[in-house]
Design a protein around this nucleic acid. Sequence first.
DNA 1: GTCTATAACCTGATAGAC
DNA 2: GTCTATCAGGTTATAGAC
Lengths: 218, 218
Amino acid sequence: MSLLQTTTKPTRERILDAAEALFATRGFRGTPLKEITELADVNIAAVNYHFRSKDALVLAVYERCFHPLNEERMLLLNQAEAAAAGAILTLEQVLNALFEPMMRTWQTNRNFILLVGRLQSEPDSQLDLFIRNLYAAMIQRFLDAAHRAAPDVSEADLFFWIHFLFGGVVYSLINSQDVGKRYPGQSLSETPDAFLSNLISFGTAGLRSRSPLKSSRS
Amino acid sequence: MSLLQTTTKPTRERILDAAEALFATRGFRGTPLKEITELADVNIAAVNYHFRSKDALVLAVYERCFHPLNEERMLLLNQAEAAAAGAILTLEQVLNALFEPMMRTWQTNRNFILLVGRLQSEPDSQLDLFIRNLYAAMIQRFLDAAHRAAPDVSEADLFFWIHFLFGGVVYSLINSQDVGKRYPGQSLSETPDAFLSNLISFGTAGLRSRSPLKSSRS
DNA sequence: GTCTATAACCTGATAGAC
DNA sequence: GTCTATCAGGTTATAGAC
């Protein structure tokens, strides 16, 4: 085994892997610790040793999953701004930095999008607060960039708009297998690049059509 | 009590009311039967008598909630088509028939939208299949109308588009209290009429901007 | 139809040996 | 760090009296 990737991962990571997959497909309350430890091939007491409780494990799974994604989004936005050398980004560029990492992640790990869906389906005040904090800085960063790109739109409308698009993307990806079954080979979710470019033109055109913009100054 | 509305509802309905509220705020697995029967002020054994099991109760709650809504959507579409007297409906009219009943329901009962969110939780379950059947006829009906309204767009794209908008609406409504807290009085969710008209212009403009339409004939 | 009592089961957590 | 054994609590479902 030595240097090959068949080297056994540490217990803690194996638990996280198993929990991520099971939480995604069955939900938190729907998956007993027993199943997690069986899938991870570790002893049932290991969860309580490495994490403190099941709730803490849930938080750890989300943190491992979402923190890098948000970092990547902000990195992309920083890079775009640096490349623009002081010029204001377009709405298209802002949306790209927001959703490109998401679509890229989607190609290799479909669990994470199901975990997002779980946030809607299993409200847990502690988890909810945790996620909110995890997202706060990123959301504010993109809100500011979007506001510079579209100064005529109120921040409230931009906030709403970003969340609307986010909800649409999540829902579409979660239910993408339905589209795929119904229209084989024609699902946008199967071609992430096309999905992203459609999303960006869809989202920007939609925002520009809204009444607050119609009655904009200048 | 006699004729007043304080007349006690039948046990079966009281259970459905309590279950709807608790499922919405806590999820299925998150709410024990005990809490439902306590809120409904009925004996715990009544659930098993009136419904057969907890799973059957879940289905009953969804059926009572979504069936009338879908009927109303189709009724509105029928009426619009009748009023058009053979002419083809616009995309705007189709979207209005689809989302107007939803926004109207939202004003009086906010539980139902949370119940939609809960559906993301158990993808493979009996509930998922049940809901799919409940929606199938309605979705096909609107898909046909949308295809007549926008013959240049493929059915696969229209299917995707409708679901994307649906996801955006659900997400926005579920998280509407966030927008409300952050921007008091400015949340579109607080004014359902504005929400609906914005949604319709947003959705149609977005669809018309998409690449398949850009390269449309005529 | 409604209630009490209880069965049968599963859950997360921990103590303590190795 | 890992395991076995077990606890304490909560869950759905049902049998049987009223």
